[in-house]
Amino acid sequence: MKKIKLSLLFVAGIGLNSMAQKIRTESGDLSFLKGQTELNIQYDFSDFQVGGFSSEAEYKNKKIKEYNEKEAGRGDTWEKSWERDKKERFPNKFEELFDKGLTGKIHAAQNNEKATYTLIVKTTFIEPGFNIGVMRRSAAVAFEYIFVESGDESKVLAKLKQPDVPGSQFGGYDYDTGARVSESYAKGAKMLAAYMLKNIK
């Protein structure tokens, strides 16, 4: 009986997790992308929560202080890595899987001057997770996808939301925070590409 209950909980957990990841349209639709072959991408990390902290700044201050107390300068090195991940690692991972998922039908990239429309990938929440060998928690990221006219962000054509996209590496060897979180960007990108191809009519 105990095994059956655990199995049911496991299945329920998968179902809830899948529902949480589901992309939903908040406004507009994607019909404007019909016939488009280029798409510009921007990333917005201006305002998001991290884990149980009310803001990214609160999270960063705590981590910097903790690491510097353990080893002088370690917290400052961590901060540089965190900022570099937002600027390079997370966007690069997203674009790699997004462009691949669009199967050549639309070329999507940052600074794409050929594109009539721009996708703003806005991060609203990051759960960094942890992996200490005997215990681990997967990362997770919540996204808003905002489609605007290139050169005029006030002209919003569609807005989508995707909460709780999990991130972890195969085999559980994701000891690095950036590695875990970047997998959330990869998964979000793949799901968004599939959603777009299905809904561009």
Score class of each variant (00 low, 15 high):
Leu6Ala: 07
Thr118Asn: 13
Thr124Val: 04
His107Ala: 11
Val181Gln: 03
Leu16Pro: 00
Val121Ala: 01
Tyr117Glu: 12
Lys190Gln: 14
Ser46Leu: 03
Thr118Glu: 09
Glu26Asp: 13
Lys87Ile: 14
Val165Gln: 15
Tyr175Asp: 08
Phe170Gly: 02
Phe143Cys: 08
Ser150His: 14
Phe147Met: 03
Lys65Asn: 14
Met19Asn: 04
Gln21Cys: 08
Arg180Thr: 06
Lys65Leu: 15
Lys63Val: 15
Glu71Asn: 12
Phe48Glu: 06
Tyr43Thr: 12
Arg136Asp: 12
Tyr117Asp: 09
Val141Met: 13
Ile146Pro: 05
Gly167Met: 06
Phe10Arg: 06
Asp44Trp: 03
Leu97Ser: 12
Asp99Met: 02
Ala186Asn: 03
Asn40Thr: 01
Ile4Lys: 08
Ser154Val: 11
Thr116Lys: 10
Asp176Ala: 09
Met191Leu: 13
Phe170Met: 11
Thr118Phe: 05
Tyr67Arg: 04
Met196Val: 13
Ser27Cys: 00
Gly28Ala: 08
Gly52Thr: 08
Arg74Gly: 02
Ala194His: 13
Glu144Ile: 01
Lys198His: 04
Val121His: 07
Glu83Val: 15
Lys100Ile: 02
Ile200Thr: 05
Val141Cys: 13
Lys5Trp: 06
Ser55Asp: 10
Asn112Met: 09
Leu30Asp: 10
Ala142Gln: 06
Lys5Gln: 14
Glu79Cys: 02
Gly129Glu: 14
Phe90Asn: 03
Gln21Glu: 12
Val156Trp: 04
Lys65Gln: 14
Gly35Met: 13
Tyr195Met: 03
Phe94Gly: 05
Ser54Gln: 15
Arg84Pro: 01
Ile120Gly: 00
Ile120His: 01
Phe90Asp: 01
Phe98Pro: 00
Phe143Asn: 11
Lys5Cys: 02
Arg84Gly: 07
Thr103Asp: 15
Ser54Gly: 02
Lys155Tyr: 07
Ile120Lys: 05
Arg136Gln: 07
Ala57Val: 12
Phe53Tyr: 15
Pro163Glu: 14
Ser18Tyr: 13
Lys70Ile: 14
Glu95Ser: 10
Gly178Trp: 07
Ser31Thr: 07
Lys60Asn: 06
Leu197Gln: 10
Gly151Ser: 05
Lys105Glu: 14
Ala142His: 11
Lys114Val: 07
Gly167Ile: 02
Tyr59Arg: 02
Asn61Ile: 02
Leu157Ile: 07
Asp176His: 02
Leu16Val: 11
Arg24Asn: 09
Ile126Leu: 09
Ser81Gln: 12
Ser27Phe: 03
Asn40Gln: 13
Gln36Pro: 06
Leu16Arg: 09
Phe170Asn: 12
Leu119Gln: 00
Ala189Asn: 09
Asn17His: 11
Asn68His: 10
Ser54Cys: 00
Phe130Gly: 05
Ile64Asn: 07
Leu8Ala: 01
Asn199Asp: 13
Arg74Asn: 09
Ile200Met: 08
Lys159Arg: 07
Glu95Ala: 00
Lys80Phe: 10
Ala186Gly: 13
Gly171Phe: 01
Ala72Ile: 09
Val141Thr: 15
Asn68Tyr: 05
Leu192Phe: 03
Glu153Asp: 14
Tyr173Lys: 15
Ser182Pro: 02
Tyr185Cys: 01
Val181Phe: 07
Ser31Asp: 06
Leu119Asn: 00
Phe170Ala: 14
Lys22Cys: 03
Thr37Leu: 08
